[in-house]
Amino acid sequence: MKRATRDLCLFSLAALIIMLVLLFTLDSANLRVVTGVYMWIGLALSWNIIGGYTGYLSFGHAAFFGIGAYTTAILVTVAGWPFPLAVLTGGVAAGVLAALIGGPTLRLAGAYFAIGTWAVALCMLQLANILDITGGAYGISLPSLYSDTVFYLLMFALAWLVFFFTWHYIEHGSFGRKLEALRENELAAEMLGINTNRQKLLAFIVSAVFPGLIGGVYAGWIVFIEPNAVFGSNINDPMILMTILGGAGTVMGPVIAAVVLYLLNRILWINWSADTAYLIFLGFLTCVVVLYAPNGLVGTFKAWLANRRRSLPDTQDDEEAS
């Protein structure tokens, strides 16, 4: 067995054990907190595919989360579809939206891409506020379909799916190599025969489908959605900040940051009912990390390790030479 595959199996097994232990030991309130942790792991890892590995900072990923949530909610309440099918359709809807806007938007570079995607997400937010089918600002209430345990397992499965994809196809696959090549130098990547437009678009679509699915499950879990709750900055911003804090373009960075920051959010909320203070922490940490460790915590740690490994034989060579 290859080392990467072995590590993936070991990590998945450990995650599965932790998940089961938590499932049987936690009360229902804490179980919901952990469900939220899985959700944010999934979202941060999805954003990481386009924002971290491909280097295109999407500031509008809430558009995909929201379209998944609304598609699911409308199909379940209006059309009476079964929940799993509605969630899958939500994922498809997110993918289609990404495919439609991806082509033109991915031609924009740097901050222009960020502004463009942000404008798209704000358009979706306004549309959800205006349209009749979305219930406008009043939102949509869904029937309570399953128990919290089912949603706990569903969120875990989705988070694991994104993790598996990132690990297998990106961190240790040729797809990820292509993305990293085009992130470092798009022209050079093209000279190597990589169809950069196609790869960028694929990465964008994949990183949109997962939030679409997660949004659908979220709608069924929370039972009530309104425009600001699924398209707003409380979904949009943490995805970006978690990934950058943990380390954009690493697998473990977004996972660690999502766990720590979402738990911090819940602690602030439960003890002081202050979820606005969470924004202070997020913003402050982002400023500090961008200033002093621009590769994020895991990225900086990896660079430090690599540097140390490299510097040891180097010093010996120097001594021999002198």
Partner: peptide, 23 residues
């Protein structure tokens, strides 16, 4: 990508300021 990092920095700053004002 220095300019992009500055953009992210100002994004963090805006989150910090908004959170502070809301709190």
């Amino acid at each position: 990508a220095r300019l992009l990092m500055v953009f992210v920095f100002t994004f963090g700053l805006s989150t910090l300021l908004k959170g502070g004002a809301l709190t």
